[in-house]
Amino acid sequence: MSKPELWVIAERRLDHVEPTTQQLITKAKSLAGDQFKVVTILLEATTDHLENELTAYGPDEIRIVRDDRFPTATDAEHADALKQLVDAYQPNSILFGATITGRSIAPRLQAKLQTGLTADCLDLRFDDDTLVATKPSYGDNIMCEIICPDHRPQMASVRPNTFVATPATGDATITTATVTFHPVDRLKVTTARPVVNTATTVGDANRVVALGRGAASATTIDTATKLAEKLGGRIGVSRPLTDQDRFTHDDQIGQSGNTIHPELIINFGISGAVQYLVGMQDSQTIVAINSDSHAPIFDVADYGYVGDAQAFIAALLAQFN
């Protein structure tokens, strides 16, 4: 008997694959063991070759459905195509990235399949053939484990950058499948423009460049602003900088400001007072630059540099250009 399938739904991001897809393939492979076959489902245009960005991560199979309408298809059209594939192949589990796109398509598919979907997961494991999904709630203050014991496929969406994608050996078999594309005329995407930065506040930015009293000169702020633009993020500040004309309370991180958990925060010239740390220590990747090697900010950082903030920002920006 062939092994049950564990699916990763590939997502497009402009002309490339959304990185979360690659992260999920790595995670799915480690979950699968001998028990499951890891299959990446890729819906793409006839001239696309997004599979070339997936093979290196070693899924057992990349199953491609081609139709020139997929790159601009709406959520319901995607969900309809995926439903047909589920009916044909009966996977055990389906993983989506918890991106805006993933979080829009997955529940629509869930409703078609009348099954369980756990949202925005931070960890996954199998207990026999039941997926145990760990998800945060109450603004990440509480964790819970959720299972879907009696329905298959079981579904989860996984927060971007929760897992690290690692290239792997193994020859992915590339196959094609067909579905009937059912266009929904009642909804049309009339324009789609790439934007570098969709964040409007430090609270909803995925990348934050944070400045403190050791990075407060006009030159440093200018350089940091350019860096934030390159990263597609926003500037945030510690409380003392809200005294400057350029910043307001809305930009402040910490106990009496915003509590944030971006994918990446780079802290320049911030000591790391508890009132600051409570506002940002749940960020996914934390970098700190401070001239004092004993600054408490280093206790919560993944990467640290002891040195001058301005010199480091300038060097980093130069290498981005």
């Binding site: 009348q114 099954t115 369980g116 979907l117 756990t118 145990v132 945060p136 990440d140 203050n141 509480i142 964790m143 819970c144 484990e145 959720i146 299972i147 879907c148 014991p149 009696d150 329905h151 079981q154 220590q281 749940d282 934390i286 280093f298 206790d299 919560v300 950082a301 993944d302 990467y303 640290g304 540099y305 002891v306």
Partner: peptide
């Protein structure tokens, strides 16, 4: 409801290991 919440707990603070940039 297909899903069941089996466990609710307070998250452990993420343990971080500092990689120095030199």
């Amino acid at each position: 409801s297909p899903t069941i919440v089996t466990k609710v707990y307070a998250p452990e603070p993420v343990k971080r290991e500092l990689t120095p940039l030199t």
